[in-house]
Structures are given as structure tokens and as C-alpha cells.
Computed example of a mutant assay.
Amino acid sequence: MSRYTITVTGNHRADSDAIIGYDPPLRTFFLQAFPDESGDDLALWLGTSDREYETLHALHAAALAQGFDFTPLPDDVAARLAADVAAEADRPPHDGPLPALPRHLQTK
């Protein structure tokens, strides 16, 4: 799983320690930002389901729909995310009982 620090804006504030990345087992991009005071809860957490956001464009659209933005994405982060996805392209899907469990639970 890749994790890169970026700035996410929303609701007239900014989180310069937000995390964007790619989760190979779930085959999705994810975004985490704006932790609460305890650090345990997040105001924004996208990309927790199998194949939820297969492109950065889809992730960006979901963030915008919730009133958050992470563009412009730094060039080096965008390049590393593209490399992360490309590195996973030749791997077979993560099948078996453990990776199948989240997919099974999502259908219920």
C-alpha cells in the first residue's frame, strides 16, 4: 500500500497532512483527511471498498462531492501513484478467503 502526504482543502480549512495512496488488495485509490482531536476519526475517508475508486479522477470526483479538494496534486505524487498502479497491473487479483471476505460483506 502506498501512502503520500498531500494537502486537502474543504470547509474553509486545509489539512496539509492528508494521505492519498493506492491499496493493491482492494484495487482502489484512497484519501484520508481531517482527523478529529483524538486522531481516531476522520472527516474524510474515501476508498475503503474493493475497486471503489479505480482512477484518481473518480477519487477526486468523490472528494468534490463531499466538499473537499486535493488538486492540484503535486507532480511527484501523481507520478508515484501511477507507478504504484502500474506495478500492480501484472499481479493476479488477490483472491482467496481473506481478500474475498470484504467483498462478501459488502454484498450483504
Rank of each mutant, 00 (worst) to 15 (best):
S2G: 11
Y4K: 02
Y4I: 04
T5P: 09
T5I: 15
I6F: 13
T7I: 04
V8M: 06
V8T: 07
V8E: 00
T9I: 12
T9V: 10
G10Q: 07
N11M: 08
H12V: 14
H12F: 15
R13V: 06
R13D: 05
R13K: 08
A14W: 04
A14K: 03
D15W: 01
S16I: 00
A18M: 02
A18H: 02
A18Q: 03
I20K: 01
G21N: 07
G21H: 01
Y22L: 05
Y22F: 14
D23A: 05
P24I: 00
P24F: 06
P25N: 04
R27K: 14
R27D: 08
R27V: 10
R27P: 01
T28H: 03
F29K: 04
F29I: 02
F29C: 05
F29G: 03
F29R: 03
F29A: 06
F30S: 06
F30H: 14
L31K: 06
L31N: 01
A33T: 08
F34N: 03
F34L: 00
D36R: 06
D36K: 04
E37Q: 15
E37G: 08
G39D: 08
G39Q: 04
D40W: 13
L42N: 08
A43E: 15
A43P: 11
L44P: 11
L46K: 00
T48R: 12
S49V: 10
D50H: 15
D50K: 11
R51T: 10
R51Q: 11
E52Y: 08
Y53L: 08
Y53I: 05
T55S: 11
A58V: 04
A58S: 13
A58L: 00
L59Y: 00
H60T: 13
A61R: 09
A63W: 07
A63Q: 11
A65C: 09
Q66T: 14
Q66V: 01
G67T: 05
F68I: 05
D69M: 00
F70T: 00
T71M: 12
T71C: 02
P74T: 10
P74K: 07
D76A: 01
D76W: 04
D76R: 02
V77L: 07
A78T: 09
A79E: 15
A79N: 12
A79P: 09
R80D: 11
L81I: 01
L81M: 07
A83P: 07
D84I: 01
V85C: 04
V85E: 01
A86C: 08
A87D: 05
A87L: 09
E88L: 09
E88V: 08
E88F: 08
E88T: 10
A89D: 12
A89I: 12
D90V: 09
D90S: 14
R91Q: 12
P93R: 10
P93K: 09
H94T: 07
D95I: 11
D95W: 04
D95C: 10
D95P: 02
D95Q: 13
G96W: 00
G96K: 02
P97R: 08
L98Q: 09
P99M: 05
H104E: 14
H104N: 09
L105T: 14
Q106L: 15
T107Y: 13
K108M: 15
